[in-house]
Simulated assay, not measured.
Amino acid sequence: MSEILNYIEENPKETQRLIGLEYEQLQQLIENGERLHHEKQAIVEAKKVRLIARGGGRKPKLSVKEQIILTLVYLRHMTTFQLLGIQFGVSESTANDTFKYWLSNLRELLPSSLLEQVKKNASDYEIVKEVLSEYELIVDSYEQVRERPGDNEEQEKYYSAKKTNHTFKSQMIILPEGKDIVDVVAGEPGPKSDITLFREYRDKFDPKQRFKGDKAYIGEDLITTPIKKPKNRQLTPEQKAQNKAFSAKRIFVEHRIRSVKIFRVVQERFRLNPHKYEPVILAICGLVRFRIGTLILPTQISVIPPN
Rank of each mutant, 00 (worst) to 15 (best):
R250N: 14
E154N: 10
D194G: 03
G219L: 13
K162W: 00
A283C: 12
I251W: 02
K249H: 04
R50V: 10
E136V: 15
E143R: 14
R107V: 01
K59M: 07
P111W: 13
K204G: 08
M1K: 12
L132P: 05
R35N: 14
D194T: 03
Y135V: 02
N6W: 01
T164K: 15
V265A: 13
L222C: 13
L5K: 14
V131I: 15
L295G: 09
R54N: 11
L109P: 01
V266L: 14
S63C: 07
R291M: 07
M172Y: 01
I195V: 13
T80I: 06
N105P: 08
L287W: 03
F99E: 02
E31V: 12
Q67C: 06
I281P: 00
V131R: 11
E10R: 15
E147T: 02
V303D: 06
V265F: 07
K13P: 02
N121V: 01
H255C: 01
A53D: 05
L21M: 03
I218W: 06
E254A: 07
F263E: 07
S113V: 01
E9I: 05
D194K: 02
R289S: 13
F270P: 00
I296D: 08
R250C: 14
K208E: 11
L75V: 06
K192G: 04
S104E: 13
W102A: 08
G85N: 06
E154D: 11
H38K: 02
V253S: 05
R264D: 02
L103P: 08
K231Y: 09
R289M: 08
E92S: 01
G57M: 10
T71G: 06
T94C: 00
P305R: 09
K59Q: 11
R54Q: 14
V145Y: 07
N6I: 00
D140L: 07
R256C: 08
D206S: 15
T71W: 06
R76I: 00
F246E: 04
S63A: 06
F252K: 12
L110I: 01
T94F: 00
Q155F: 03
Q27T: 09
Q234Y: 09
L29Y: 12
E31C: 14
I301Y: 13
A283T: 02
E22V: 07
P176T: 07
L29W: 13
K229S: 03
T164A: 15
K249D: 08
A216I: 10
V139D: 04
N165D: 15
S160P: 01
